[in-house]
Design a protein around this nucleic acid. Structure first.
Lengths: 87, 87
DNA sequence: TTGACAGGCAAGTAGCCACTTGCCTATCAT
DNA sequence: ATGATAGGCAAGTGGCTACTTGCCTGTCAA
């Protein structure tokens, strides 16, 4: 999961899913380009999504030829549990 | 900061500082070897500490020829603020 | 059924990153 | 002063990783 968060493009993908959950690959590609200027190939984004899914940060639901991606932030709890934030 | 967290050795360093704050470089090296089986060079650990310091996760205090390292977990707040954890 | 659309697989490449190696500086005790 | 201790600097190397390229599979509408 930590390696998944290490890439800025992947973090932007999480941002995008946080704003609009359940996007498809093509939808993500166009929105990443429009709003964040990320001009990556579809395959690049697809591989990023694979990493995020393997990290448990993105959940996937298939429906016909569409594949919807959903943000799951619960794995992040491990971080603050491991190193509690004290002021 | 995210890249700093991506390396398992650096995460173990944070663990070690969480358990015993204010360690020196040599102290960290021996404890990483003893307790976690991390057999890295002093220079390797030093470079990791540089990364952690640049990420703001480790604070440093110099005293004579000693350099003490302190865990600072406050940058981690950015994570849960950016992607709130909802159950 | 056939073309268009959404996505997947796999090999190759270039850049980054963790680590080592070798040497140097600074501080302290004897 | 001098040896020992704590740490720093910098170049080189191997492996990982993000990205591309090319082609393939599956789904749906006309």
């Amino acid at each position: 999961m930590f390696k998944a968060l290490a890439d800025p493009t992947r973090r932007t993908i999480l941002d995008e899913l946080a704003e609009r959950d359940g996007q498809t690959l093509f939808e993500l590609c166009s929105r990443l380009l429009m709003k964040h200027g990320i001009d990556s190939t579809r395959q690049a984004i697809s591989q990023h999504l694979d990493v995020l899914e393997a990290a448990g940060l993105v959940q996937v639901k298939r429906d016909g030829r569409y594949k919807f991606h959903y943000l799951d932030s619960t794995p992040l709890r491990e971080i603050t549990e491991r190193w509690p934030i004290r002021d």
